[in-house]
Design a protein around this nucleic acid. Structure first.
Lengths: 342, 342
DNA sequence: CTGAAAGCGCTTACAG
DNA sequence: CTGAAAGCGCTTACAG
């Protein structure tokens, strides 16, 4: 470990400016209980010393003493998406107004999940927004919340318990997408899913479960060779759909766990000479802005508003509250958004 | 501010287990100078108390005492890209092996840049990787490095100075893309750029500068109406290229500051009935995997290897080193990658 | 108006 | 083998 080579402390500043560390702290923080701030002359001496040695406050010392870190986190499943980017941006705007910082915690793989949980558990941050598909034990969330961590959790099943929950109703929306295809007469419907989705019993597999359930409800047989774990790779998705279309009995519709893969499905169909939606109907899940660009525009499922201000505001309300707030349930419902590709 | 309601401390655990806080710390950290660990019976008592009250170590206390946070950061310009996602993932893998955590710091807008800098300056993290286009004062980097922050900086101009620098040679590569179009006979070449790119004299504007310079070198007049600030929005890029193609004197080639916008340019041309590259040649910048999916495959500029292991390893070497390491210059050169779209 | 002092939660040489 | 104690850098009630 590199030795921290002589980072100056407030004691160094105090000595240099000929004042006490208390005065240094008052000057730097600008706060002072109710009392008057130090006089201009003292201020200047302190600030000069600060500039001379390049002093920066030490986060560990300050946050240990103040019992908070002035930092909030956004935890989201990798890879990032326009939605996670947008949420990060909105959190940063609100945080910057309050002088707080935002750290993003992209979760790729279960092993890193454990590492990221530490950031919440060890009080590295004062609050967090958790996007769906973050592998968190509900009991643990309750404990974290009870210890004063401000938490806004996107989840369709969890009950609020010291933290707030944002409902998206993803299962209903995903089923609506498949229903839409079935209602249009489709019987051979392929599914582009996340790798490993059928092995994990996580919230993420809500998409695959919805697909299976709707087919079953309509008496449509499930064929394993129509379920392809390619939704997280544009190349894989494109290749898979081209292959599907070359089969003797190609599907007439595709539902994809991601909009990105759905868009690739549209390209694949176009490049194959199959018209969309006539030859192949395509639905995505997620409603990313990109779906509006392709021709035909992508039918999908997701939130209509590209906006998280209500959820972000709630996080900061919890942070600012002098007493624990009552639990809230918020809504950011996913809808079926019918455009032209199905 | 919510009062931290009774987060248990090691003192609580010690009292409950009938041992000293030193013993609690030894049990929890597993470390003990050279000496033997506490005996099994003591260990069990401590761990039971820990479980009973749901104790979690406090990051502020620990990192103040140990003089490090066991956390590293990745700072990158928003929006995220497959490259920033990949780097975050590789950092997390290496960090997890060492029991460290990774936080991502997406930089959207200058105001948030200042907030994020605090994370480095105040020693929230022990080290960081900085991707290009993060607005950092070189002098400040030197100070941070001298104070012991491990730093790997992607930059083409900065000299290493207590931190390592990764060279990408972006200017040369961007010029090569435009040269490639000029060499193919193109004279009316549109440029899809970042909004505000011409106002900021940042490293980011290396793309626009390269475009202008090559045209000038070849005696090609610059027309302002061929420079469009749409490269950060898929919808804007698509619309802009459709509009370009409807002009009486449409460009014969497009170079885009992002691969995403370049891909939209290809779609726009296809939807307009203009063959690519015959009717419109298109080059991107960035080399994202998606460029391999479209037809024709995207000609672009970027790193060939989708891999940051050398740079990540270097960060952790710096972290592990007992004495400051000599400065290193590393290479992750951007190349012109000629495929089918130009 | 300013400074001495306590203490946030932890780790770690050190004494017993 | 275990505990008492010091101290990391900071902030803040409190005494002067």
């Amino acid at each position: 470990m590199t030795e921290p080579p002589d980072r100056p402390t407030q004691r160094d500043i105090a000595r240099r400016a000929g004042v006490s560390t208390a005065t240094v702290s008052y000057v730097l923080s600008g706060r002072r209980g109710g009392a008057k701030p130090p006089p201009e002359e003292t201020r200047r001496r302190v600030l000069r010393a600060v500039a001379e040695v390049g002093y920066q406050v030490d986060h560990a010392g300050r946050s240990l003493r103040r019992r908070r870190s002035d930092l909030v986190a956004l935890m989201y499943p990798a890879p990032s998406s326009p939605w996670s980017d947008r949420l990060a941006e909105q959190m940063q705007e609100s945080a910057a107004e309050r002088g707080l910082g935002v750290v993003a915690l992209p979760m790729s793989g279960a092993s890193t999940g454990e590492a990221l949980l530490r950031v919440l558990r060890e009080r590295y941050v004062d609050g967090a927004v958790l996007l769906p598909d973050c592998p968190l034990d509900p009991a643990e969330l309750t404990v974290l919340a009870r210890q004063g961590l401000a938490l806004v959790v996107f989840d369709d099943d969890l009950d609020p318990d010291g933290f707030d929950v944002v409902r998206q109703d993803r299962a209903r929306a995903c089923r609506a997408a498949v229903e839409h295809l079935v209602a249009a007469g489709h019987r051979r419907i392929a599914y582009l899913g996340h790798p490993g989705e059928d092995r994990r019993r996580t919230a993420r597999s809500v998409k695959l479960r919805s697909y299976r359930r709707v087919l079953r409800e309509h008496g449509i047989g499930l064929s394993a060779d129509l379920v392809l774990p390619v939704a997280d790779s544009r190349r894989d998705a494109y290749a898979a759909v081209r292959e599907l279309l070359q089969r003797p009995d190609p599907p007439t519709a595709v539902v994809s766990a991601t909009d990105r893969a759905a868009i690739d499905a549209v390209w694949a169909a176009r490049d194959h000479g199959t018209p969309v939606p006539e030859g192949l109907a395509v639905t995505g899940i997620g409603n990313i802005p990109e779906g509006l660009v392709i021709t035909p525009a992508l039918t999908t499922v997701g939130a209509r508003e590209f906006d998280f201000s209500a959820q972000v505001a709630r996080l900061f309300d919890r942070l600012d509250a002098s007493a624990p707030l009552p639990d809230a349930e918020m809504s950011a419902r996913w809808e079926l958004i019918v455009r032209d590709s199905a």
